[in-house]
Amino acid sequence: MGSALGNNMNASKPAASNPKNTIYSINQTTSKKGNKPHFVELIDEVTSMPVNNRLKEVRHDHRMNQTEFADFLGLSIYQYNRYEKEARQPTLEIALQISEKVKRPVNDIFYLTEEAPS
């Protein structure tokens, strides 16, 4: 992958409506016509999997309504509601903070669709 003549950079090509993202290596060697990369090499395909959560179950375990639980987590009710309904995904930092506050491993709360319990 790549040449000893130049540096390799990884660039992610965004997926339009395709659930697969393709990662390319751009060989930064100089072509005779200028200083532009002269080929792009396909490296790998990465399948994106939706992240789901068990926030509602965790909230019920704490015997709180959404407003109380959002307050407990230090989130606005609007933000928490969007996470619980999976309309938005929390950042990694927020997911880890939630995990700490409810004293459960992060992967007990957030999981990839293919990892859901049967």
Results as ranks from 00 to 15, higher is better:
39 F>Q: 10
65 N>H: 07
48 S>I: 13
12 S>N: 12
25 S>Q: 15
30 T>P: 00
42 L>W: 02
17 S>Y: 12
9 M>W: 04
10 N>Y: 04
19 P>V: 09
13 K>I: 13
29 T>R: 15
2 G>Y: 03
6 G>A: 11
9 M>L: 10
28 Q>H: 06
13 K>E: 07
17 S>V: 13
46 V>D: 04
15 A>M: 14
50 P>I: 05
36 K>S: 11
26 I>V: 15
45 E>F: 04
64 M>E: 05
36 K>W: 02
34 G>W: 13
55 L>G: 03
23 I>P: 00
55 L>M: 05
8 N>G: 01
55 L>I: 03
3 S>V: 12
12 S>I: 12
16 A>F: 08
56 K>D: 04
30 T>A: 11
30 T>C: 08
43 I>R: 07
57 E>D: 12
20 K>A: 12
54 R>Y: 01
4 A>G: 09
40 V>C: 06
11 A>K: 12
49 M>R: 07
53 N>S: 04
15 A>T: 12
54 R>V: 00
36 K>E: 11
40 V>D: 02
36 K>I: 08
64 M>H: 04
57 E>I: 07
37 P>H: 07
38 H>M: 06
23 I>M: 01
53 N>Q: 01
5 L>F: 06
55 L>H: 03
61 D>V: 03
39 F>V: 07
51 V>Y: 00
59 R>A: 04
8 N>Q: 07
33 K>M: 06
15 A>E: 14
9 M>N: 08
58 V>E: 00
24 Y>A: 08
36 K>Q: 07
10 N>M: 01
40 V>N: 02
4 A>I: 12
12 S>H: 04
15 A>S: 10
48 S>C: 14
17 S>W: 14
59 R>S: 02
34 G>V: 15
14 P>K: 15
29 T>W: 10
60 H>W: 02
2 G>L: 08
60 H>I: 14
28 Q>A: 10
19 P>F: 02
11 A>S: 03
29 T>E: 09
48 S>H: 12
16 A>E: 14
49 M>S: 01
45 E>M: 09
19 P>T: 09
3 S>D: 07
55 L>R: 01
20 K>H: 13
61 D>T: 05
56 K>R: 05
32 K>H: 13
15 A>G: 14
49 M>P: 02
60 H>R: 14
34 G>K: 03
36 K>F: 13
9 M>T: 11
11 A>P: 02
40 V>A: 04
14 P>M: 14
